[in-house]
Deep mutational scan, measured.
Amino acid sequence: KEFRPGDKVVLPPYGVGVVAGIAQRSVSGVSRAYYQVDFPGSRSKAYVPVEAPHSVGLRKAL
């Protein structure tokens, strides 16, 4: 896996977040693995496909 729990990442347009782990989510009846990204200071979460994280701009924070 490219990202691990605890990694600081950037996800446009949300900003800097932390990978909380990998979650299985069902979309249109198909279960897939997603990185769960939490954003400190907020209750917001984002789910990014493990198979294509760069397709939505997910990258490691510098």
Rank of each mutant, 00 (worst) to 15 (best):
P12F: 09
P13L: 09
V19T: 00
G17A: 01
R43E: 12
A23T: 14
S44M: 14
Y14V: 02
Y34T: 01
V48A: 05
V9A: 01
Y47R: 00
Q24F: 15
S28N: 15
A23M: 14
R32I: 09
K1G: 13
G17V: 02
R59C: 10
R25N: 05
V18Y: 12
S26L: 14
V18H: 05
P13D: 05
I22Q: 03
E2A: 13
Y34I: 01
G17N: 00
R25E: 04
V10Q: 05
A23R: 13
Q36K: 10
P49F: 04
E51R: 05
V27A: 05
A20R: 12
S26M: 14
R43V: 12
R43F: 12
R59T: 11
K60I: 09
V56D: 05
V9R: 00
P5I: 15
Q36I: 15
K8M: 13
P13S: 06
G6P: 01
A33M: 14
D7Y: 03
Y35S: 00
F39W: 02
V27S: 06
S55T: 10
P49A: 06
K1F: 15
S26I: 14
V27G: 04
A52C: 15
P40Y: 12
P53A: 15
Q24S: 08
F39Q: 01
G41Q: 11
V56E: 07
P53H: 08
D7A: 04
P13I: 05
R25H: 08
S26Y: 12
A33V: 10
V56K: 08
Q36L: 12
A61W: 15
S31D: 07
P49D: 08
P40D: 09
Y35N: 02
G29V: 01
G21H: 06
F39S: 01
V18I: 11
R4V: 09
L62E: 14
E51D: 13
S55R: 09
S42E: 08
G57A: 05
V27P: 04
K45I: 12
R4A: 09
G41I: 07
G41A: 10
G15D: 00
A20Y: 09
I22A: 01
V18E: 04
G15W: 05
P12D: 07
Y14W: 12
G21K: 10
Y34R: 00
Q36M: 12
Y47V: 02
Y47T: 01
S26D: 11
R43M: 14
V56R: 08
V27Q: 07
A52T: 07
K1S: 13
H54V: 05
V30G: 05
A46I: 13
V48Y: 03
G57H: 05
K8C: 14
K8L: 15
V27M: 07
P49E: 05
E51K: 05
G17M: 02
P49Q: 05
D7V: 04
V18C: 09
S28W: 10
G15I: 02
S44A: 14
A23P: 02
K8H: 11
P40W: 09
R4P: 14
K45E: 06
Q36R: 10
G29T: 02
S26K: 13
E2D: 10
S26C: 14
K1R: 12
D38Y: 14
S44C: 15
V50F: 06
P12K: 06
V30P: 15
V10M: 08
S55H: 08
E51G: 08
P49K: 03
G41M: 09
G17T: 01
G17R: 00
A52F: 11
P53M: 06
S44R: 14
G57C: 07
A23G: 05
Y34M: 04
P12G: 04
G57D: 04
R43I: 11
R32A: 15
V18R: 07
K45H: 12
V37P: 00
F3V: 02
P12S: 06
V10T: 06
V37C: 04
R4I: 13
D38L: 14
K1H: 15
V10F: 14
D7L: 03
V16E: 10
G57R: 04
I22Y: 06
G41H: 13
R59W: 04
V9P: 04
K1W: 15
R4Y: 09
V9Q: 00
K45N: 06
V18T: 08
F3I: 05
E51C: 09
V10S: 06
Y14C: 09
L62N: 13
E2P: 10
V30F: 06
L62K: 10
P53G: 08
R59V: 09
V50W: 06
F39N: 00
L62F: 12
D38T: 13
S44N: 13
R59P: 03
A46K: 10
I22M: 05
G17S: 01
S28M: 13
G41K: 10
V10K: 04
R32S: 08
A33H: 10
V27L: 07
G29W: 02
Y35V: 03
G41V: 07
R43H: 13
V27I: 12
A33P: 09
V19P: 00
K60R: 09
Y34V: 03
Y34K: 00
G17W: 03
I22D: 01
P13W: 09
A20H: 08
S31F: 13
S31P: 08
F3P: 03
G6Y: 02
K45W: 08
Y35K: 01
S44T: 14
V18N: 02
P5Y: 06
V30H: 13
A52I: 06
K8R: 12
L58N: 03
G21C: 10
V48K: 00
P53T: 13
R4S: 11
A46G: 04
V10H: 09
L11S: 03
V56A: 14
Y34D: 02
S55W: 07
Y47K: 00
R43A: 12
P12C: 13
I22F: 05
P5K: 13
S26W: 14
G57L: 05
S28V: 06
Q36G: 01
F3Y: 07
Q24K: 11
V16K: 06
Q24T: 13
V19L: 08
R32E: 05
G15M: 03
G6H: 02
Y14I: 03
V16A: 10
Q36T: 08
I22K: 03
G15T: 01
P49H: 03
Q36C: 10
V16I: 13
A52G: 08
S42M: 10
E2M: 12
R4T: 07
G15R: 04
V56Y: 14
Y14T: 01
V30S: 07
L11K: 01
F3S: 00
K8N: 06
S44K: 14
L11F: 07
R25V: 13
P53I: 11
G6K: 02
V48P: 02
V48T: 01
V9C: 06
D7K: 01
A23I: 15
K45S: 15
S28Q: 13
K60S: 11
